[in-house]
Design a protein around this nucleic acid. Sequence first.
DNA 1: ACACTTATTTAGAATCATTATAAACTACAT
DNA 2: ATGTAGTTTATAATGATTCTAAATAAGTGT
Lengths: 132, 132
Amino acid sequence: MKYSEKLRNSGLRPTRQRLQICEVLFNTNKTFHFTINDLSEKIKNQTSKKISLATLYNTVHAFEKKGYLKQIPINSSQTYFDTNVTDHHHFYDLKEEKLIDLKNSDVGPINIHKKINGKKIKSVEVLVKLED
Amino acid sequence: MKYSEKLRNSGLRPTRQRLQICEVLFNTNKTFHFTINDLSEKIKNQTSKKISLATLYNTVHAFEKKGYLKQIPINSSQTYFDTNVTDHHHFYDLKEEKLIDLKNSDVGPINIHKKINGKKIKSVEVLVKLED
DNA sequence: ACACTTATTTAGAATCATTATAAACTACAT
DNA sequence: ATGTAGTTTATAATGATTCTAAATAAGTGT
């Protein structure tokens, strides 16, 4: 299925910029982590036409809202996004400041035994900090 | 044990500012979450003498480094700290933008079955996002 | 193809949390 | 009391993110 159709089905017009961003983010079997700045660099390198920063922010947030990207909860000066939107967890190497995927099977099942009235669980995310 | 001794034992001089901050943060049985801004407001309300923002940042980071505070990994415009430095986890109510403590017993034990060469696990933190 | 409406892109400005600076001050050892 | 290393402070600087409003492009109906 072409990105343009997917976008349209999500209520997003398939613009040149969005299609380029889709290529960079999703046209690979591997999933990966990135910041807006990383994305900006990739766009500069992999494509000829530049996209303004504002558009990168707009688009990444639009994709996140649609569920095509996830924010990774971590304290860093920049926000990290993940193209892997399945339930999974992360190592964070404090020294290298690098994120590493943990498969779900690397972390046992997690059961939350507490409920909050009127609220349901949207996601469960584990961050494992690593030091030397 | 007095805060001044504790500070000295940690290699931090017990200054008026640090002692005031200790009072606000630790002089209660309840632990709590706060941002630098929250702390600034508390200091303004609970004490007569003001402390500069720079000092609040310096001190909170110093306390964190010494293990008296923990940063909570969450994507928010401000950094959240926790006076509860024991291993425990959090709910994050996305609508109210509020953190709620989870006791360790509310979350089963978490076993990480993956190792990274030369790295050891410093912490394991679970963030459970809540929606309506 | 054309006109029209609405969504999108964009450069640049604005915002805001945080960090850096460097001068004044203070704790503490001698 | 003096010296020095550690702290505090006001203020400036930084930098990621968001806002703005004008220009552009996409979709729709004719």
